[in-house]
Amino acid sequence: MKVTVLLSAGLHPVSGRPCPAAVELQAIRLAHTLGTPELTGLHAGPAADAVRDALGQGLPRLLWLETAVEDDPLAGLVAALATDRPDLILAGRQAQGADDSGLLPYALAKALGLPIIADAVAIEPAGEGAVHVVQALPRGARRRVTVRLPAVVTVHPAAPTALPFAFAAARRGTVERRAGQAALRSGAAIDERPYRKRPKLIAKAAAGASAADRLKAATESAAGGGRLLVDPAPDEAAREIIAHLRELGVLRR
């Protein structure tokens, strides 16, 4: 099976130095669960510093399409993938280094005419020409989707952690450098400034919610001030706990 992993020019969130995006490294690990695929990393961008380290984390070879900083990587990637025709294209949930909008895999799938499945945490072979993709849903639930290949699959951060970095493997891996395609990024002018963290708007006593919800939100403030039972009989304590948990909706039986 031919598998291509899309790699982006990640940045470390604290130091700001180039570093591979964690979720793409997890994608490499998922590719390894498909037996021994013919695995290639694909990156389009002006530099491959960040991506090169992925060679130490399970990627044997990297194809680097060299483009200018202002180029849109999509056209080059589509051209490369259209000639290479991998069975499975893996990408992170959200690439880094540019807009971080997570849109590229979708645009790519559209351009290549391939189906796309989002948020994989596991991929298993499912007979000839198909795979089971296990998707992460909130709160630990999963959806198992069988999809016909070729397909694009994006990987969720809940997937197994990446293979650890091996310096010697990074040294051994090969980087093939090709000229990319020049394609100007489209889109309206966007004002940019240094990121500033905004406080989350905690809508505890959501005024738009029903009166019962408001009451609930007000009575169960997280900052304590709840009910206190001192030395109840164990049975009584158990009853109280069960009633309380049921009220919170976490006890489903």
């Binding site: 169960e220 403030s221 997280a222 304590g224 709840g226 009910r227 206190l228 039972l229 001192v230 030395d231 109840p232 164990p234 049975d235 304590a237 158990a238 009853r239 109280e240 706990i241 069960i242 309380h244």
Partner: peptide
């Protein structure tokens, strides 16, 4: 939000039973 001052070791069997 609900605090019970009691021995957890005694509350657990009661919970199970309930």
């Amino acid at each position: 939000g609900l605090a019970i001052v009691a021995d957890a070791q005694k509350v657990m069997p009661a919970l199970l039973a309930a």
